[in-house]
């Protein structure tokens, strides 16, 4: 199957959007998950609810919220454009922002569950052994939660690459600008006499997702087997 330039653009854009999302999701998500796992504070439940909200809200609601906040007439959108020259409206950055917000809670939930599983005595022990907070994170929490973090990363990547509702509402469906794979498939499926194009895009989507999940799953299984036999993670 030789890919057309139209398909290549959609694949490229999808990967770019998902990759940029992950580059934000992983550090931000780790920081939030670690903070939530290790600390109790007033209003924690409220913050957790807000973070998880994109999981339960229809994505179109998130997309519309983003549109209201970041369009060129809105105060926030205007401010970002004037001060940083940054615009999210109707471009791939907007698609990445939508994917990030939709996929972030999946990553946070998984990473936090991993951090929660770590015996709190380990961190206390490390403290009495003189380890700094950074060292406790990098040498204890990170390696011990790595399988959960990886699993969260896979989920988030899959969600980001498949993001549709929020993206189409926020940045619309503009070929080579904001048209990711699912959006291209949607357009092909809607148009008359585009059945073959739709079928090809569907197959590409399945192959892409299958490949990513399969490779990650192999890696995950390997590391959890090592964990059981008491080997290094």
């Amino acid at each position: 199957m030789i890919l057309s330039s139209y398909e290549m653009a959609a694949i490229g854009l999808s990967l770019k959007v998902a990759a940029i999302s992950m580059m934000v999701i992983i550090p931000l998500g780790l920081a939030i998950a670690y903070g939530l796992s290790r600390h109790n504070f007033k209003g924690k439940a409220l913050i957790e609810t807000i973070i998880n909200l994109p999981l339960v809200l229809p994505p179109v609601v998130i997309g519309y919220l983003l549109l209201m906040a970041f369009n060129r007439q809105a105060p926030l959108g205007q401010f970002l454009e004037d001060v940083f020259g940054l615009s999210f409206a109707f471009n791939w950055l907007g698609a990445a922002l939508a994917s990030t917000i939709i996929a972030l809670p999946l990553f946070i939930r998984s990473a936090k569950a991993g951090f929660d599983m770590v015996n709190p005595h380990l961190a206390k022990s490390a403290q009495t052994l003189g380890a700094s907070n950074v060292r406790i994170f990098t040498r204890i929490y990170l390696p011990l939660s790595l399988p959960a973090i990886m699993a969260g990363g896979i989920l988030a990547f899959a969600r980001a690459i498949g993001e549709f509702g929020a993206t189409i509402t926020f940045v619309s469906n503009i070929p080579s600008l904001t048209q990711t794979l699912p959006l291209a498939l949607y357009q092909a499926a809607q148009a008359p006499n585009m059945e073959e194009q739709a079928f090809r895009l569907m197959v590409i989507s399945i192959v892409l997702s299958f490949g990513v999940i399969y490779i990650s799953q192999i890696w995950l299984n390997k590391s959890s087997q090592k964990d059981l036999s008491g080997q290094r993670l």
């Binding site: 380990l122 206390k124 022990s125 490390a126 204890i140 011990l144 008491g230 993670l233």
Partner: peptide
């Protein structure tokens, strides 16, 4: 009490 050895 549980020794808190680092398992990894």
């Amino acid at each position: 009490q549980d020794n808190a050895l680092f398992p990894h």
